[in-house]
């Protein structure tokens, strides 16, 4: 998990739940393995290097340069230094977008991921046709495209007729008239509800896959030792899925920070009343697409990248230290 390379001999193995005594015995006995060529990792990564060199580095450079320019169509541009950045950082709309995005990121980390994991645990039992069906049911929202999601949620969130309003009304005898997509206070909650519907099943798949590699015998041993369900989860299951959980946390964070399509579709290609559905990428989009100001858009892109990178590295570092502590 840790980003730093580990010294040889102190491999992941030692902490891995898979460690079997036979394997440990062999590596500590120091049987000599044929050393691999130093070029091996680079060869494995060759396709990545080629694709990145051709399709990523130039656009990246282009976007970087652009962030310091103002452009007008294809032929004209002028150097403006840090003006694009300073404009963005002084724009109240940017902070509004930042706030909305953070709200969404927090909700997806603390609401959606635990739900995904919980459902994965529930559905991770032995062969069971019924559970197969539930897995499909919960994953099913991912089978459809964005346009359908737009059509659907416009219908769900309408006051009086919306199915969601009707459901809330049937449960709590109130809320039939709520204008989910027309009320600044309710736009982000509506987006979060829609995202729960869409993405809970998505992340469940990763957790399900990760759960398959939990050593059943370790769980059994823990059960025999008298560990409760919660204890078993904390001490066996969680460490076993930690690497994949890190992946899910990091990619979900990156994804949440890039939230755009969902609110944009829900709000009919808009940003909601009083920009209540404006996200950072939506803000960027306003420059790139609504205003043809690619320079400022690139600057927003860089600010976003630095932001996400900071958060992701903290997450990876955190998950690394928790492993060390054990």
């Amino acid at each position: 998990m840790n980003l730093e390379p580990r010294p040889p001999g102190l491999q992941e193995t030692a902490r891995s739940p898979h460690a079997s005594s036979r394997a440990l015995a062999r590596s500590s006995a120091g049987a000599s393995a044929r050393p691999y060529a130093a070029s091996a990792p680079y060869l494995f990564l060759l396709p990545y290097f080629i694709v990145t060199a051709v399709f990523f580095l130039y656009p990246l450079g282009y976007a970087t340069v652009l962030a310091f320019f103002q452009t007008s169509g294809p032929v004209r541009r002028t150097f403006v230094g840090l003006e694009n950045f300073s404009y963005v950082l002084n724009d109240p709309d940017f902070y509004k977008a930042l706030w909305n995005t953070l709200l969404f990121a927090v909700a997806s980390l603390f609401l959606q991921l635990p739900l995904s994991l919980g459902l994965a645990l529930l559905l991770n039992a032995r062969q069971d046709r019924l559970k197969g069906f539930f897995r499909l049911a919960i994953f099913s929202p991912n089978l459809v495209g964005q346009v359908f999601v737009g059509i659907l949620f416009a219908m769900l969130f309408t006051p009086q007729y919306g199915l969601f309003n009707k459901l809330v009304f049937a449960l709590f005898n109130t809320g039939l008239q709520e204008r989910w997509l027309g009320d600044p206070a309710l736009v982000m909650p509506a987006v979060i509800i829609a995202s729960l519907w869409l993405y809970v099943g998505f992340n469940m798949i990763y957790f399900l896959a990760a759960l398959q590699n939990i050593d059943q015998s370790l769980l059994e041993a823990a059960r025999i030792d008298g560990a409760g369900a919660w204890q078993r989860f904390l001490n066996v299951t969680l460490p076993g899925i930690a690497p994949v959980a890190t992946f899910v946390v990091v990619t979900s964070t990156i994804g949440s920070f890039q939230l755009f399509e969902l609110p944009y579709t829900l709000l009919r290609q808009g940003y909601g009343p009083n920009n209540s559905g404006l996200t950072i990428v939506g803000y960027l989009y306003q420059f790139a697409f609504d205003g043809a100001d690619l320079g400022t858009a690139a600057a927003v892109g860089w600010i976003l990248t630095l932001l996400i990178l900071g958060v992701s590295l903290i997450q990876i570092r955190l998950s690394g230290t928790t492993r060390k502590d054990r």
């Binding site: 600044p184 808009g270 909601g272 009343p273 009083n274 920009n275 209540s276 306003q286 609504d290 205003g291």
Partner: peptide, 18 residues
Amino acid sequence: PYQRQAIAQLNSAFGRAM
């Protein structure tokens, strides 16, 4: 050139009024 952004700002003022 900035018509769409202007509409967004106008509606945003309206939203605050609401």
